[in-house]
Amino acid sequence: MKRILIGERGLWVYATFVAGCGLALTLSMPWTSTLSDLMSYPWRPFPLPFFLTYGFLSAWVALDRAAEAVPVGRPRVAFLAVAALRVGFTQLLALPLVAASRALFPDDWAAIPLAAAYVVAASLAFAAGAVVLEILAVRRGRHPAGLRYGLFFAWLGLPAILLAVAGPIRTLAQLSPAVAVASIVGGDVALPGVLVAFAAPALATVAFTVWCLVLSKGAST
């Protein structure tokens, strides 16, 4: 079980994930104990940094652990299952911290499960993408890390450019995981935006899974 969930050198990756999320949560927690502190340094609950850190580190762990799950010469369909298990393991580690973030939502808490569900969906998409890239790179004998993280940052950043555009096309900015998490946590996203946000990782996961199956079939024949 440990070998499947953690893999080679995985303990440090997961520990970094937990420590990073924990640090973000610690810094997001209110520190003022008296009103004089609050008057000098006005503060209000601001859960976004924690959720952005949590989303970013989840995606990073998903990319790293999914890629690591693809050894040479094994049946490739199982890689996806291992990658999905590792995404689940990552979210299990984040669960206590996400639950503790309830303290940062004085009013509506519906954003917590929604944001966490989105992070899971995006992590699965990144994991599936990492598996496909790893298979392709192994086939061509190249190291895929640069391409993997390049595409990751492109997906993260490019749709966000649409925030500068007015009109309905602006909704497509939700394709960026960073924008989607910010919108969900901020509670300023309508249903179409939520659907667009969730559709992107869902479609990407399906596409990468099918691609992986095709690659797997090609390899077996």
Partner: peptide
């Protein structure tokens, strides 16, 4: 008196404690 009024908030140790216990569990499992 206004300035000395306490600000209701979670304890300082909540986030570090949760992080520490999670890390300890992970290391133990690892």
């Amino acid at each position: 008196l206004l300035r000395s009024t306490r600000v209701p908030r979670p304890a300082y140790w909540l986030a570090p404690a949760v992080t520490g216990v999670t890390l300890a569990s992970l290391v133990a499992f690892g």
